[in-house]
Design a protein around this nucleic acid. Structure first.
Length: 620
RNA sequence: GCAUGCGUAGCUCAGCUGGAUAGAGCAUCGGUCUUCGAAACCGAGGGUCGUUGGUUCGAAUCCAACCGCGUGCGCCA
């Protein structure tokens, strides 16, 4: 899933400076032939091996037919001065590892350089742009847990790139066109319900009924005839089929009027969208997700681009008739991609082709990310290949855009089956969020009841706001902190337990720091940073990893890497705080230095959480 | 059947573009609150990294086969 990640040198990035130093050393020691040798700089596997380690010696020695430790020594002897300035003397260990320990003053200098509003994150990618397909709701349907994932994973990926300075196009690929919508629309119009008062629940019901009606009978009738049941049953089914056919004819008629722009139908259709989207935006707001009307690029947006798209495939001889339908075939697989039905109408693949083309050629995106359910893997593989075949990934400057599907797994219930309510219904996202908020509020209130708690005495409204932040953080962090490709079991108890690797744990570390800074009445401002204790060093090194963590998470399209960074930082902070007094029993210089460390940690935590759109309350 | 993804501690999962003794959290057991926020910290036990081969100086990581589970597979989206 990895792809281009233009990295820009950062002044505070010690790892890159070490790597550059070792590259120089390799060439100085072994000659130009070593210019392509990767110094292989890694974070040390174990603190006793230093802060970083260089692993180039074993492989290099093998090709040279020399002793790895001698090779390592030879390279280390040629280390340039700028490298020696930031490192303690190198040690050769084991089979030929080079252990690298940074000098405390170099760490302090790097931290000082990082203490800037950017927090060391380069936003020098302004010429790059990415389109992110997220959310993907269907008109007239309630959002469910699947949409939670498509929405927050997409939003986080979008924010990662925004943080790096990319131009980001959020694309909400609404299901707002075609027969399914027409069926719902037709049903609503037939029922003569006041379309101005209709709720999403009503629409949801109408949608489901229309869907079931459309499916049932055809399949049922065919099956009945095939299995030769009695004539009564056939007649019954035929009657049903008649009703369904009438509904279907009505739907087709409605679709035709919608497509031809019949004002009354179009107006009602727009109302369905309004009713649906009102709730979507509300949910997005609760989740902190940046999703607005301007991000809507639904199926209807592409309706006039479908025929031309199909036509181009035909012209290019990439689409062929098969059983009346048009299919695109691929050299390496049996499965074709169907782009036009035998009745001449388009289907979802057609829209995806048009959308991909729009994102690359109209928006100019060099990267298009699709945050869609893992079950669509094959579908996107086919669509992407078709788009490449016809050359729509070629951008204005002749470079090639990348299309990447970020497949996410299912949200499961305790029984390891897709999440359902007690009564077997699909869980609506709204219900899920309501429960999470209620749990968050309960936890916050029970702690505020303790007399000397920092939240003690806060107003009910304040506690509610904090509780909501905690509840939402709990489910968002749980979702984003594991590999998105995997299924996970939705267990609210675990998510809100606040122990271990959870959103509230990160929020707690942040609130703790806020408490310290408030008590101190200062933040260390420009005081010199001194790195002494082991825990200070560990905290500092983690802070310095922040820019790299963002770049890595973005390049890998893996929000869980950002989560891992957050957890690690909260963890090292708590350990630091445990053993390094900040406010008491230390001299002024240490106090100021540590306050500055605290403040930097607070800002990095808040910034990292903001990329997941998780709020970090000052008290909780 | 074909394709595709996944099998790591009792449970939930990191680590997977090859590097030193495989890491967390939960649970279990044991320590830290008269002093900066204990939603915290420190420590202990717990592993044939599905199996078998292969590549390599070195494999949880790469390759192959097999076993188990999930998902997908032309006129739904």
């Amino acid at each position: 899933m990895s792809h281009n990640a233009a990295r820009t040198p950062r002044t505070n990035d010690l790892a890159h400076r070490i790597e550059a130093g070792f590259r120089d050393a390799l060439i100085a020691a072994m000659g130009d032939s070593a210019s392509s040798t990767d110094p292989s700089i890694k974070v040390a596997a174990n603190p006793k091996f230093g802060d970083f380690q260089a692993n180039f010696a074993m492989g290099l020695a093998k090709t040279l037919g020399k002793n790895p430790r001698e090779v390592a020594q030879q390279v280390v002897d040629h280390a340039p001065q700028f490298l020696r300035d930031i490192c303690e003397p190198f040690e050769i260990a084991g089979p030929g590892f080079v252990n690298i320990r940074l000098r405390p003053d170099a760490i302090a200098a790097a931290l000082t350089a990082m203490d800037h509003p950017s927090l060391g994150v380069s936003d020098a990618h302004r010429t790059h742009s990415v389109a992110v397909d997220l959310c993907g709701v269907n008109v007239a349907k309630q959002m469910h847990v699947g949409h939670l994932r498509a929405t927050i994973i997409g939003d986080t990926i979008a924010r990662l790139y925004e943080r790096l300075g990319w131009k980001v196009f959020r694309q909400n690929h609404l299901g707002d066109w075609g027969l399914p919508i027409a069926m719902t629309l037709a049903a609503v119009r037939r029922a003569k319900t006041d379309i101005n008062r209709v709720t999403l629940d009503d629409l949801n019901t109408a949608y489901r009924n229309a869907q079931m009606q459309g499916r049932d009978d055809e399949a049922g009738l065919t099956a009945a005839r095939a299995t030769g049941v009695g004539p009564h049953r056939i007649a019954e089914l035929e009657a049903q089929h008649e009703g369904a056919s009438a509904a279907l004819r009505d739907a087709h008629d409605t679709l035709r009027r919608l497509q031809s722009g019949d004002p009354a139908v179009v107006a009602d259709w727009q109302k369905l969208i309004d009713v649906t989207m009102r709730e979507v935006y509300e949910t997005a707001h609760v989740l902190g997700v940046d999703l607005k009307p301007e991000h809507n690029r639904g199926e209807s947006f592409f309706r006039d681009r479908l025929s031309p798209a199909v036509e181009e495939f035909v012209q290019a001889n990439l689409a062929v008739r098969d059983d009346g339908a048009l299919v695109v075939r691929f050299a390496d697989r049996e499965r074709p991609l169907l782009i036009q039905k035998s009745d001449g109408t388009s289907l979802y693949a057609t829209t995806d082709l048009a959308a991909a083309r729009y994102r690359v050629q109209d928006l100019g995106a060099e990267l298009v990310v699709y945050c869609v359910d893992a079950r669509q893997r094959d579908h996107f593989r086919d669509v992407f290949d078709a788009v490449r075949l016809i050359g729509w990934t070629t951008r204005a400057d002749n470079s090639q855009a990348s299309l990447v599907h970020v497949p996410f797994g299912a949200v499961l219930g305790a029984d390891k089956r897709p999440l359902k309510t007690r009564s077997g219904e699909n869980f609506t996202l709204k219900a899920l969020l309501d429960e999470a908020v209620a749990r968050g509020r309960h936890e916050v209130r029970s702690r505020a009841a303790v007399p000397d708690a920092p939240t003690s005495g806060m107003s009910s409204a304040e506690l509610d706001a904090i509780g909501e932040a905690v509840g939402i953080a709990a489910i968002k962090y749980a979702d984003l902190s594991s590999d998105v490709g995997r299924d996970y079991v939705f267990d609210l108890d675990r998510m809100v337990s606040f122990e271990g690797d959870t959103g509230p744990y990160a929020q707690y570390a942040h609130a703790r720091i806020c408490g310290i800074l408030a008590k101190a009445g200062e933040n260390g401002a420009t005081s010199p940073i001194v790195i002494g204790a082991l825990e200070e060093r560990a905290l500092a090194l983690n802070l310095l990893r922040y820019p790299g963590a963002i770049e890595d998470a973005a390049a890998q399209l893996a929000p869980n890497r950002l989560a891992a960074f957050i957890y690690e930082l909260a963890n090292t902070f708590n350990a630091f705080y445990q053993s390094c007094p900040v406010l008491r029993g230390v001299d002024d210089a240490t106090r100021h230095s540590r306050l500055r460390l605290c403040d930097l940690t607070r800002r990095v935590l808040a910034d990292a959480l903001s990329i997941m759109a998780i709020t970090a309350p000052a008290r909780m």
